[in-house]
Design a protein around this nucleic acid. Sequence first.
DNA 1: CATGAATGAGATTTCATTCAT
DNA 2: CATGAATGAAATCTCATTCAT
Lengths: 213, 213, 213, 213
Amino acid sequence: MKRVEKKTSRAERKARRPDEILVAAFEVFAAKGYAATRVEDVAARLGITKGTIYFYFPTKEVLFQETFRHASTSYTDLSTAIGSLRGSTADRIRALLLISYESTANDRKTGELLRLSLAEGIRFPEAVDCYHGRFITPTLAALAALIEQGVKSGEFCQHAAACARDVLASSIFQVAVWRLMFADRTPVDSKALLEAHIDLVMSGLVQRSEPRY
Amino acid sequence: MKRVEKKTSRAERKARRPDEILVAAFEVFAAKGYAATRVEDVAARLGITKGTIYFYFPTKEVLFQETFRHASTSYTDLSTAIGSLRGSTADRIRALLLISYESTANDRKTGELLRLSLAEGIRFPEAVDCYHGRFITPTLAALAALIEQGVKSGEFCQHAAACARDVLASSIFQVAVWRLMFADRTPVDSKALLEAHIDLVMSGLVQRSEPRY
Amino acid sequence: MKRVEKKTSRAERKARRPDEILVAAFEVFAAKGYAATRVEDVAARLGITKGTIYFYFPTKEVLFQETFRHASTSYTDLSTAIGSLRGSTADRIRALLLISYESTANDRKTGELLRLSLAEGIRFPEAVDCYHGRFITPTLAALAALIEQGVKSGEFCQHAAACARDVLASSIFQVAVWRLMFADRTPVDSKALLEAHIDLVMSGLVQRSEPRY
Amino acid sequence: MKRVEKKTSRAERKARRPDEILVAAFEVFAAKGYAATRVEDVAARLGITKGTIYFYFPTKEVLFQETFRHASTSYTDLSTAIGSLRGSTADRIRALLLISYESTANDRKTGELLRLSLAEGIRFPEAVDCYHGRFITPTLAALAALIEQGVKSGEFCQHAAACARDVLASSIFQVAVWRLMFADRTPVDSKALLEAHIDLVMSGLVQRSEPRY
DNA sequence: CATGAATGAGATTTCATTCAT
DNA sequence: CATGAATGAAATCTCATTCAT
């Protein structure tokens, strides 16, 4: 019977439509920016027509905002990740930053969100808010929490820890910006760069008044 | 008398027009992005009409490219700056990064160029090339030169120096991205952030007289 | 009831639109030439808007080319006409030229195509090719075929027949040009002119073995 | 001294300017048509600027009309030519048509005037009037005069002569149209075509009292 | 006289949005 | 629900025309 073969029923399909649209829209918006993206481009990517998109989203502007929100949501939840980390505080920070990196490296979405935030931030402040709330705040909070632990445990020197949070976070931005700008022309070993960054910062962060080991 | 008041003759005006246009165009392009900028916006900012802009630049696309190039050109020349730096290598690196920071902080142009590079890089690869050539390459070269001096003089440990260049450079990106995104909402003390970054990295970079391990 | 009155469904309308546009466009292009025709003029003639035209044709240039091609296509097919002609070869040639004349006289299209070919030929060489292929080549071929028959049957003298084809064809051009230039100012009896032309040429063409007078 | 070398004084140059402009304008108008011709194109061809053209001609429209008039004026004066013709009436007609042909063949101007008349005739009826008055009317008059002489002298048969004028004239149009359309693609031996045309028409025109063959 | 910078009206073209089917 | 023909506002670009120099 037909029904058996058909894996996605009409109802299922319908339920997924908005998400499908948001996914497709994200790709186009990320690649071309808001103004240069045509609603039809998004539709074409799904093999549907403009009209269908307008059935789910009232305007292009709303489509953009929902798209941005949707794309931000799927970001790996750091607060759960942080609980499962093991090892010294330094190891856990390193692991945390690598998790961020991986999520960026795998689906590029995080990087593209950064691009969109920067590119469209002036016209869509909510997008920046969203990016900030979903990505930056949790990352900074997680880092801050880990650093505090390190200070308490004596691993980190109090003084350096004060602004270590932002400095560590910058490693993520560095890699993201690097990839956005030179993606296809100057391939960079992002992971090595990230780890070097972490190493250098860490070595300035660890307590050193006496022999370390 | 009219004549007396008129400070700019027609000839003078003409000679300055292209530059005036490029300056105005940069502001609008930086604020709205390529696609959302209307040629008329640029004209209005100068109190002239579209036609005048098309008299000097054949298309909006060319206007953008020239604008980008023009804005990139005025970036503080690091190779001259580097010669006038004094003090220890660490001091000179610090000074160099602060120069970059100042140029960004004062006219925002550097930051906006970064924004445009990221936002329009896909459609205007030459813009990225330009930004790369004018800004990133000289900065990295200057840093690399200084680091090498530090290694030779024994100030920096060989091992850490290997990737210090990129890590130091990331401080600039961090500040720039931060300012671009949160300019008016979460004012950041960029200078403090930058100096903290440098401090941390430096402390991981300097040669330490006793064994680390 | 609305439904009853509406003779043309949306689907029917859509199917006819391209042709409707091409017909309207031909009239305007023929009357004003390519450059002086505004796309809006064509739209207005159909009671639609510019946008609709651009929905079917990507540019004004393509619209012109398609229009020309479309207008050329409907020209009376001479190769079928030639088969149904009766009488002496001279009679059949006369009939053939009159068929050409009638098609010109009735819808003016042939004449206007000539005007467009001449007027826009430099910018649209394909238009000339098209006119040549659809109109001139078949006419000349048909005439040549008939003349050859006349020579074989002994009706025409070999010598004169050599270039009779072009000379007979010129009668068509003469009438067409005449009508194009003086259409509304010096009305000419085109038919009489054409027949006189044919008579004169024919009398030079026919084999005469005995005194005419 | 400079003056000696300078062949054209400023005054001379000034006096020729309008004519120079009209000559250049004709070439551009003929090649591109009225609407597609920019005033600047005409200026560029003379190495001067738009402003100068506007000094001599108030609008582009006037420039076109003057240009057309000017180009028509230089047409070989047939009424003087006709007096100097010798030989039989048939010979003189042949010679007259060849004179027309030569003037066309040499400077192409006559052909281009025809093109412009047809292309712009609807918007510039005066251009057609001008072409008619300067070219067609004299040609037809000259032909009619010669034909009448031929009839009086018994060379031509009365009957055929009635419309011989237009038929003979058509040979000129045929050649002109042919050259305009196929100038560079299907080079035609215009002169042979013209002479064949004349031969055929003449042989239908001449009085024949005895067997031709 | 000649120049050419500047204007502004108007033409081509694009595209978000609507709505009858 | 989905479609896609149609709209119309707006953007890019052109060019005849003007006028200060």
